[in-house]
Amino acid sequence: MPHPTSQAKPITRDDVARLAGVSPAVVSYVVNGGPRAVSPANEAKVRQAIRALGYRPNAAARALALGSSEMLAMIVPDAINPFYASLARAVENAAAERGYTLLLADSQDSLRTERRLIKNFAARRVDGLFLSSVLFEPDLMDLEQSDIPVVLLNHPADLATAGSPAVKKDGAGGRGPYAVGVAFREGARMAVEHLISHGHERIGLVIGGNADSELDAREVGWQQGIQAAGLTEGPIIRVPFTREGGYRAGQELLARSERPTAVFVSSDQQAAGLLCALHEGGLRLPEDLAVFSFDGAPESEYTWPRLSTVAQPLKDLAQGALNALLASGPGQEPHTKIFPAELVFRASCGCHTPAAYPTDYPLRHPTS
């Protein structure tokens, strides 16, 4: 009889192979889903042997053998924000296609939490990190010391200067992480120009902030659109990037004796809260106040009225970020990839029929 304190010998891949009557390589292909195909008959034998023996693959041993954890991490500032939830899903799908598992963490808009999460993922030796930071230039020292590549995802890279220590544009030399983002400034400017095309001459701004108080590219685009038309800027209301923040902005607009006739909002989530407050105040939308928001989150199509929005190309962002992360390494220069934004015209800006759409903007019809 074995000693009571002795442990049973762990079941190995070779044990499974012997019981199933196949090679250890075939067991590996079944367990890992490739890279080679396995006949249905052999796959059934392997799975039956796995169940009979109670085999559990050793992830730590596999990571040691491969020199890779096959895990990527992602930090977002608000995991329950529909935009970040959709972006995380797009990144997870793109990573899965390349054989990686994605670990998702929420910094909850806290710089302290973001730094703790970065240290945690660096200590766990993930193969790479996607970071949607609360800072324009986050502290990445822990990742650099661990030689873990990082991509700044959803980064307002169109505001970065060529000499920025955080981002180098278009393959410019120098140290720093990759950055992948959308044309925030250009998208905001196009949205303002569209509102102007509806006859609005006083356009306000509802915008969130960031931890380091850097100027938001969407605010710059809003200013540029108004200035190019020779108009006077409407009121600026600064609130958090939340529905509650948007609701407060709506209440502030309702309290004003002189309201703008249109407003550009920096996120769909803020705009949803804004619409709620304006409805409660008895305003007609878009007749009394037209609204154009930013992000293209799923909920933008289910507000009332449906939100006109500057949509971010989530699949392109996810694939671009993954390609940048996997390509980064010694000898690879960091660069910035900026994807164009797309205007989606719905009822909140005053577009009710396809005939009302201007012809000089990228166009996507409402899906209903």
Rank of each mutant, 00 (worst) to 15 (best):
P2V: 13
P2E: 03
T5P: 00
K9I: 11
P10V: 13
R13D: 01
D14Q: 08
G21C: 08
V26R: 12
V26A: 07
N32T: 07
N32I: 11
N32E: 08
A37G: 11
A41V: 14
E43R: 14
K45M: 09
V46L: 01
R47A: 09
A49H: 02
R51N: 05
R56A: 05
P57E: 07
A59K: 06
A63D: 06
S69P: 11
M71I: 09
M71P: 00
M74E: 02
M74A: 15
I75V: 10
V76Y: 13
V76H: 10
N81V: 14
L87T: 01
A88K: 03
A88T: 05
E97G: 03
Y100K: 07
L104M: 08
F121D: 02
V126E: 05
G128A: 05
S132L: 03
F136T: 14
D142L: 15
I148T: 14
V151L: 02
H155R: 06
D158C: 03
T161P: 01
S164M: 02
P165K: 02
A166F: 00
V167Q: 08
G174I: 10
V182T: 08
E186L: 08
M190F: 04
H194A: 13
L205A: 11
I207L: 15
N210C: 02
A211P: 09
E219P: 03
E219Q: 09
E219K: 14
G225S: 13
I226F: 15
T232R: 06
I237M: 00
P240I: 00
T242I: 05
Y247G: 13
Y247Q: 11
E252G: 01
L253V: 01
L253G: 04
P260S: 05
T261N: 03
F264W: 13
S266A: 13
Q269M: 04
Q270L: 00
C276D: 09
H279R: 14
H279G: 06
E280S: 12
R284G: 06
D288K: 12
S293N: 05
D295A: 10
E301G: 03
E301M: 11
R306Y: 00
L314H: 12
Q319T: 13
G320T: 07
A321C: 06
S328C: 10
E333P: 01
P334N: 12
F339M: 00
P354Y: 11
T359G: 15
T359W: 08
